[in-house]
Amino acid sequence: MIELRDVHKAFGANKVLRGVNLTIPKGESMVIIGGSGTGKSVLLKSILGLVHPDQGKILIDGHDAAKAEREAFLARFGMLFQGAALFDSLPVWHNVAFRLLRGKSRLARDEARDIAIEKLRRVGLKPQVADLFPAELSGGMQKRVGLARAIAADPEIIFFDEPTTGLDPIMSGVINDLIREIVVEMGATAMTITHDMSSVRAIADDVAMLHDGVIQWVGRVQDMDNSGDPYLNQFIHGRADGPIEAVR
């Protein structure tokens, strides 16, 4: 279970998070929605310790994330980055097996490669892709490789940062379905940030809307359309008029 308690973060005068409170139950898939620049990525990076909150607590299974031993803490996570963030200088299989090749539970190269190829197969890529370099892949294939890397070490918690950005609607659907299948199959706790509403409906058990530095609404995905919350309604229907100011 992930708990965020009164998390604040500012960059200079720009107060991005102004007291975020949110609980993600174990094994649930939470999708955070919100406009561009509302701090969704900062929130996600705060949990991972890539950004240090100014105030507040982040608890993972009741333990303070800030006090955890870093390697053991990060070993529980997998993450799919917005642009996949694959390492250009390494072949695909090495990208996928990166975590498996280092740390206390390091595997032999052959064993790690076999697992990488199996994970690539799980995300719909053929073994021949394993020896290509990331620059030789299409955007959709890179996302799949990023997904394979995120699940390579069978993490308990998986984060997805804008998983469908830059993909066509069909490929977005494929990635959304893959994420849902994998999260259910692994029983992992998932947190996705997106503004793609088709992703929300495909991936989420729960939805939280981040606006103005706080969680504006949180609830089950099936309750989203009848929430009665004007902010959420404006966002999910993509209306220019409403309480959220749209810059024209």
């Binding site: 890539l50 390697e71 990060l74 642009g83 963030a85 694959l86 390492f87 890397r149």
Partner: peptide, 16 residues
């Protein structure tokens, strides 16, 4: 380039 494409963040999340 690794920094702007989040590869540095990816390294950290991979315990490196």
């Amino acid at each position: 380039t690794m920094k702007v494409t989040e590869q540095i963040d990816a390294l950290v999340t991979l315990s490196t």
